[in-house]
């Protein structure tokens, strides 16, 4: 393992030597005896004693089982929650009848009506499961979540303010958070109508209230329990847990979708 590490560093030496941000080493990473990152190390804490959720995060479970099929090829390598956020629910998502019909239509059209395919924002909580990275920057009164796709952001206010009443509808909604022990609880409202929660087209409407419970399990792992309460689209609230792994020794890079988007013109109406 040490030899392999040495080889890797040697091969990347030109990049590291010239301080390329692509490979820039993350500071203060706990290490194992062989020098590799200790992802099971304890959770770092902030000066005020809270778990520090800061860092770059990525969806752990990635789709790779497309053996013997062709339709799923385009989704190889995508986080599994991006294909279907309700994949872990035994009976699937509890759609209202109209929502079930809409999802059927969206899936039959191979998701070509997806706002994401038109370079629209990576709305949270869907944003956690894109192939791009998310970076949390935590301060005592505010957590900012940065997203590589379209260099976008989301704010979670920890300053005790209430959720807004009748806010201007937003792709990310409006979020406030508070700590319950070592779990950060985020409440969100004010979502724009007709959002998608995944590639299948699972809806999120302007009546949605979302609760996220974030627990950093150890240095390298973050669980995000998402509860969606959206009576317009679903017959009852539902909960799924997204599993994230830390991303080290690289940086956030812009992916500005409209820069040279060339797929929409290939679509039939």
């Amino acid at each position: 393992m040490k030899q392999l590490t040495a080889v890797c560093i040697f091969l990347l030496a030109p990049a590291l030597g010239t301080a390329q941000w692509l490979d820039y080493p993350t500071a203060n990473v706990p290490k194992l005896e062989d020098g590799s990152p200790n992802l099971a190390a304890p959770v770092p804490r902030t000066a005020d004693g809270k778990p520090d959720l800061s860092g770059m995060w990525y969806a752990m479970e990635v789709f790779h089982d497309c053996v013997g099929q062709t339709e799923c090829i385009a989704q190889m390598g995508l986080p599994m929650d991006q294909r279907n956020i309700g994949r872990t629910l035994e009976e699937g998502l509890p759609f209202q009848d109209w929502a079930r019909e809409v999802v059927g239509r969206r899936t039959a059209r191979k998701s070509q009506d997806d706002p994401h395919a038109r370079c629209l924002p990576p709305n949270f909580p869907r944003a956690y499961s894109f192939p791009q990275y998310v970076k949390f920057v935590q301060t005592p009164e505010l957590i900012v979540m940065l997203h590589e796709f379209n260099a976008s952001y989301r704010q979670v206010f920890l300053d005790g303010r209430p959720l807004p009443e009748e806010p201007f509808p937003a792709w990310n909604g409006y979020s406030v958070g508070h700590w319950e022990g070592d779990t950060l609880v985020i409440e969100s409202n004010g979502f724009r109508d007709e959002l998608w929660l995944d590639l299948a087209g699972s809806p999120l409407t302007d009546e949605a209230r979302i609760t996220e419970r974030l627990t950093r399990k150890d240095y390298g792992h973050l669980d995000i329990e998402v509860t969606v309460n959206d009576p317009k689209a679903y017959t009852r609230p539902w909960t799924v847990t997204l599993h994230q792994e830390i991303v080290l020794n690289t940086g956030m890079f812009e992916e500005i979708c409209l820069e040279n988007e060339q797929d929409v013109k290939l679509l039939s109406p």
Partner: peptide
């Protein structure tokens, strides 16, 4: 080095 796997993004594949 903890770099994520290759994945296509943005378009639906349609």
């Amino acid at each position: 080095l903890g770099i994520a796997p290759l994945a296509h993004a943005h378009h639906s594949g349609a």
